[in-house]
């Protein structure tokens, strides 16, 4: 494709990214570095501050559905970890909707076989969500609840097992990923590349997916050359991250499956259940 077409594709995906993802990397980094003036995030660093912060966590959830009624029915006796885990699930389900809308904006995606669109999302969406966590994280903690809260890494590590094991691998990945210093326009293309993976199990028609991915890859390569002229091999380094990402998702899904077995009161959000069933 012509360079001009590749640039137009990059612009289009960046616009879709800004449209569907409410907390950009630019905004997250401004919050993390204290450059947002008066709106510093509420910090959760222990159980007391978690209780105080729960009103923030719950204030932007989707309309009350059966799942959330179950969530709010959980009493303190069931454990703060489970209650927090349910809040995370609600936000994740909403994030899946955002990623779906972003996927639909990738030129050619909605023309793919509908079964293949489902497969691409099923396998791609957790990878995308983990990549999107990276800008929200630094070595000390992570923004949650649309940037209204900063939760410390030490607090997450202090939760009971296996909850304490859930976020640490994402921190390790994110701290390394953030050294690549991608911006939101680079991220938009990288997310599209992840979604358009032609090697997902059960795809019916791989060729058109690979063709779409190839175009986005060309656009990403050009974007990185223009946007990061001094960063050698950035394109190759970024593609290598996709391998690490698959392992993180596999481990994450296994942890959720373990939780389902060991936590009596655990109910998995129906959308997340759909995605994780028979995934890995």
């Amino acid at each position: 494709p012509e360079a001009a077409d590749l640039r137009a594709l990059a612009r289009h995906l960046y616009e879709a990214y800004l449209k569907y993802f409410p907390l950009t990397k630019a905004k997250a980094r401004a919050i993390l570095s204290g450059k947002t003036g008066d709106s510093a995030p509420f910090v959760i660093h222990d159980m007391k501050s978690l209780m105080e912060g729960e009103q923030f966590i719950n204030c932007r959830q989707m309309p009350i559905q059966e799942h959330q009624q179950q969530t709010s029915a959980l009493t303190a006796a069931h454990g703060v970890e489970l209650r927090f885990f349910h809040s995370c699930q609600s936000r994740s389900a909403e994030a899946v909707r955002e990623v779906t809308e972003f996927a639909k904006s990738i030129p050619g995606f909605v023309d793919l076989d509908l079964n293949d669109q489902v497969t691409l999302l099923k396998y791609g969406v957790i990878e995308v969500l983990i990549i999107m966590m990276a800008p929200l994280m630094n070595k000390d903690g992570t923004l949650i609840s649309y940037g209204q809260i900063f939760m410390t890494r030490e607090f997450l590590k202090s939760l009971r097992k296996p909850f304490c094991q859930m976020m640490e691998p994402k921190f390790e990945f994110s701290v390394k990923f953030n050294t690549l210093e991608l911006d939101d326009s680079d991220m938009a293309l990288f997310l599209a590349v992840i979604i358009l993976s032609g090697d997902r199990p059960g795809l019916l028609n791989v060729k058109p997916i690979e063709q779409l991915q190839e175009t986005v890859l060309h656009s990403l390569e050009l974007q990185l050359k223009l946007n990061h002229p001094d960063s050698l091999q950035l394109f190759a380094k970024l593609l290598q991250k996709m391998t690490d990402l698959r392992q993180i998702v596999t481990d994450h899904v296994h942890l959720i499956q373990l939780l389902k077995k060991t936590e009596v009161d655990m109910c998995l959000h129906p959308l997340l259940q759909e995605i994780m069933k028979d995934l890995y």
């Binding site: 989707m62 309309p63 909707r97 779906t100 639909k104 999302l121 959000h269 759909e274």
Partner: peptide
Amino acid sequence: LKEKHKILHQLLQNSTSPVDL
């Protein structure tokens, strides 16, 4: 596959308006 992934399918088929999750 569509049958086993009704919500995903619904998200894909619907417009950009929020879907009941």
